[in-house]
Simulated scan of single mutants.
Amino acid sequence: MAMGSLSNSDDDFNPEINTTPLVDVMLVLLIIFIITIPVMNHSVKIDLPRATNQPNDSKPENINLSIDAEGKVYWNADVVDPAELNARIAVAAQKTPQPELHLRAERTTQYEKVAQVMAAAQSGGLSKIGFVTEPQGK
């Protein structure tokens, strides 16, 4: 008995692998997995909180404080004296959320007046101070 010989006679053994049984086994395993996977899926019921789409934070108003060349102070376009300025700063500092102070001064304004307004804002309790400038071309 000559198994695996490479002769050309018709009685010899054919060394090619028959893949039909392998494909059958693979298809049977695939069907078994398709049937058993949904059964094995264990889910846990969780009561998740609901989200809202409304923002919770509110933007504070901005206080526009302007100082002209003569040293006059404007609170949102209203002229105020130093005593009224201190009173308005104290009221604004108590608000929640605290407003931001936007300080704008003319180019020829004395720095002393700007420093006085900044000191009044700091002593009054305003912690957010921003300086508004204009581009060089204007």
Rank of each mutant, 00 (worst) to 15 (best):
A2G: 09
V44I: 14
T20P: 00
R50I: 07
Q136N: 15
A92L: 02
V23P: 00
N8K: 14
T20F: 03
K72R: 05
I46K: 01
S66A: 08
F13I: 13
V28R: 08
R88C: 04
G130M: 15
P97A: 08
S127C: 07
N64V: 11
W75S: 02
N53A: 06
D47L: 04
D24V: 05
K59D: 11
H42D: 00
D68G: 05
K113T: 10
E61M: 15
N56E: 03
G130V: 12
Y111D: 00
T19H: 02
H102E: 06
E112P: 08
L27Y: 04
L6V: 01
W75M: 03
G124V: 07
I63E: 15
A77C: 04
S43R: 09
A120M: 10
E16C: 14
F13C: 11
Y111Q: 01
N8R: 12
M3T: 13
P60T: 12
A119S: 12
I17Y: 15
A93V: 05
I46D: 00
V117W: 05
D47P: 02
N76M: 06
D81Q: 12
L65E: 04
L27Q: 10
D24G: 07
T109C: 01
A77D: 06
P55C: 04
K113Y: 05
L48N: 04
V114T: 07
T52M: 03
V28Q: 02
P135V: 13
P99Y: 01
S5E: 12
T36Y: 05
T108V: 08
V25H: 04
T20E: 04
P97S: 07
L48S: 05
T96V: 12
Y74T: 06
N53I: 04
P99H: 03
V79H: 11
M1T: 10
I32F: 12
N14K: 15
G130W: 11
P15H: 14
W75F: 05
V28H: 01
K59Q: 11
M3I: 15
A121K: 08
I89V: 07
